[in-house]
Structures are given as C-alpha cells and as structure tokens.
Design a binder for these strands. Structure first.
Lengths: 154, 154
DNA sequence: CCGGTCGCCGGGGATCCGCCGGTATATTCC
DNA sequence: GGAATATACCGGCGGATCCCCGGCGACCGG
C-alpha cells in the first residue's frame, strides 16, 4: 500500500498541493528535474492512484455560503442508503466522515444563512439526533502531509 | 460579499472543482464559450478571490497515512498561539476548525498507524481535554456547492 | 561481457496560452 | 435622438508549453 515514494516524488506532491495548476515545465524546474522526467513521475503518481484528482479551492463566503458548521449525527438504524442519498443530493454537505463513537457521522456543511443551516439540520435530524457547532474560523486551509510518516519518531 | 456570479460562472466553478487542471481551451468548450472568454471569466474569479487556489487530491492511504481521525479539543485557556504553532508544525493536522460549543477546536488528522495517532493525541492533550474518533470511511470526496444558495427554498 | 531495465534528457511537431484588436449589445450622458 | 462608454464575446497571432519518441548512462543478473 505504501507506494514507495522517494524524496522527489514528495517534492512533486508538495508542489502540486501548493499549486495544482503549475505547468509541467515549471514543475520540473521546481523539483530540479527536466520537464519530461517530472512529467513521467507525475503520470506515474496519477496512474498509481496516489494523486486522485485536481480541484479549485473556492472561497465559500464569496459565493454566498458564509456559514460553515460541523454537524455530528447519531444514526441508530442500520439502513444507511436513504441518508447517503440525501447527502449526495445536498451539495451543502462538503464532507462526510463515518467514525467510531456515539456519533456515527461527522459532517461539514455550508449554508447561506442561519435559517438555511437550520433547515439543513432539521432535514438531517430526521435520521437521528444531531449535534451542531458553527465554525468561527478555519485556521488551516486544507493540506496534506509533505513527507512520509517516519514512524520511528512520528 | 456575494460577488454576483451568473450561471456561466457557476459552470466554470463546477468544472474546476471536478477537474482543476483542465486546459483553458477545453474549459471554454465545456461551458460553451470561446477559450478567451472562458479565460477572462476565470481570471476575474481568481482576482476577485472567489478561486483561492488549486491543489492536487492525494490518497492518504497510498502515501503511508492510512489512519484518519477527528479530534475535538476543549481548550480552557485564552492564549491560542502555542496551539496554533503546534498545528502549523504538525503536517498530520489536515484541517482545523474553531467552533462554538464545548469543544473549541475540531481537527482532522492523518496518521501512519494507531501508535502514531496516539502520539499526536497525546501531544494535543497537553492543551486540553480531547475527544478522538477514528474515521471508518470518507463517504464524499471534498466538494463544494455548484449553485447559489437559493435562500427562497434552501 | 552483455542484454535488459530503469530513470532521465532532449528534440520536434502539435497544441495551448496570453495578448491584442474588433464586433455587437446595452447603458449613460449630453 | 445620437454619440460615447462599458461590457462581454470572438478570432488571430507569436511564443510558450505539452506530448511522444529516440537515445544515453547507470545498474543489475546471467
């Protein structure tokens, strides 16, 4: 499962997490490689499934979703399909983590207003009891690790 | 704050969330616009700050971080700088949301193993009491809304 | 030694990007 | 009304970039 990445691969991954649209020529320059060598490595990372895609980061406030919240859902039943269908239909649900513990799901949702958030939570509450926390601020932008775990001294 | 985006802008945003590395020519084709018109709109969205950046999505399991967890931290003090410094230094912390409620912070962390996660939680517990839930699965890949809030019928 | 593999480099044609001018429609101002 | 301005789009051109291919050197294993 560990795909045996060397330091150059990690440098490429780091660069692409910082600037996912960088030109291949420039990418090679940044990791001290020719453009074609960097491209070979990038294509390999893509075909191995290490890189699963590229996406633009959007300022949710500027597109009309200024309210961010974490909703935890305690779902007593075992039939999860109806919930999953709702989550897929509702684009306001940004992330859905199924976890251990009392609260089976931890969701990150965006809303246009408190009234909007209230409606979303009501809809989710049809499936179980919810706990909602509004987000003041998101300290870190989403990012990923830049080096292997180094389990000897993690 | 709402930057007055029309349907074409939303189509561009949707396309870039699906494939952030699409060529401008192809982007124009996908939203039924010439390449230069699509480029103009994209640059406008970037300069308005609607698009804040581009990044590659990485399969954390394949790069040696198979364990994902949500850690909530109840932080009694008011001096947050030491905590923030730790969060910045620790690349295992993927996301940091400061929220309402008892648990001031909700963190999403990645680890190479349970032992690694244990160490991370121990480190965080120096700042307050923590609640940790391991993630079974991440149902939705990260995504954003594809249309304006439509608060009339949200 | 020698054939095979691997990673990297460089070239050349096709494609794309960035910039410019031009057009059509709507708005504003005199 | 009529003209000037603004906005959004298109198309084209030079230069940069991408994609594909062949070649080079290092590193095995026989």
């Amino acid at each position: 499962m560990a795909e045996n990445l060397d330091a150059t691969d990690w440098a490429i991954l780091a660069e692409l997490q910082r600037d996912g649209r960088v030109a291949l020529t420039e990418l090679g320059r940044r990791v001290s490689l020719s453009a074609s060598a960097a491209t070979d490595r990038l294509r390999r990372l893509e075909s191995l499934g290490v890189i699963t895609g590229y996406r633009a980061d959007i300022d949710l406030t500027k597109v009309g979703y200024p309210v961010l919240a974490v909703v935890r859902l305690k779902y007593p039943g075992s039939r999860h399909e109806p919930l999953h269908r709702l989550l897929e239909r509702r684009q306001e649900v940004l992330e859905c983590l199924r976890t251990t513990g009392e609260d089976c799901y931890t969701l990150k949702v965006a809303a246009g207003s408190m009234a909007h958030l209230e409606r979303l939570v009501d809809e989710l509450a049809r499936f179980g009891s919810t706990t909602t926390n509004v987000v003041y601020s998101q300290t870190l932008p989403y990012r990923g690790p830049g080096t292997p775990p180094d389990e000897g001294r993690p």
